[in-house]
Amino acid sequence: MIFDIAARSLASSKVLIPVEQLLGDCTGSRMPEVDPERLSFDAAIRAVEACPTSALQLEGRDGARQLVLNYGECTGCGNCVEASRGALRAAKRLVHCGVSKSALIRRWDIDSRNERFSDDPVAAGAASEIRALLGRALNIRQVDAGSCNGCEAEIGALTNPYYDLERFGIHFVASPKHADMLLVTGPVTHNMAEALKRTYEATPSPRLVVAVGACGCTGGIFAGSYAISGAVDQVIPVDGYIPGCPPTPAMLVTGILRLLGGRALKGL
């Protein structure tokens, strides 16, 4: 029987997704983006009003009206896409998995219809980042600090034959003492705050901490609840942020590789 299953598995088609296709892909995450061609003040107002979190904001800055989208707070509910009649659409690519929290935020000038900071952090150094990355193995310890388990389901998918995180030399380990990186999900609950701090302390330096999901990045829809201590960076120091509710496996790969790339190049 074991041989039947092994034979069957070997006979099935190869499904591994090449890394070039993964980097920056966000299909299925429902993250929105602005179509600058169709952006108008009216559409921006409708979108902001439809947003049930504070992910979308209108701001006046440098004498210009701007539409601000903070991916760290976005749950991808799709309300803005419906309300804005085409000015916002479901994004296929999202490179705003940030090393800094500000990289999660995009701004569009409503009147000139231009994005204010349109740097593409992944495209610029993807190749060298991956090369740098392949030079070392990385051990990840995942910590659920209060998540709804949506993020866990997608992090679990990273080891399936489509994403196969191990191809990059990256492994999930059972103990923080074996880890180089903590992948932390959830708004940190009061009941988990102490356990998260102790897990962080048990992780040897140098260590990286990545906040995962809208809840991990900003507290998400649970921010302000009586039971929540806050976003991950309100409890332990954070080096990287991966938005999404939940982030897709491709977004997780993008975020992890990006963070490693940056650090690796700095000679960590």
Binding site: S9, S12, T27, G78, A90, E154, A157, N160, P246
Partner: peptide, 23 residues
Amino acid sequence: YTARLKELLLQSSARFFGTRCWR
């Protein structure tokens, strides 16, 4: 193998409904 079958269903959801997890 089951992880592969599960992923197939998630990707179909993304394809037909725009969301992997029916949110």
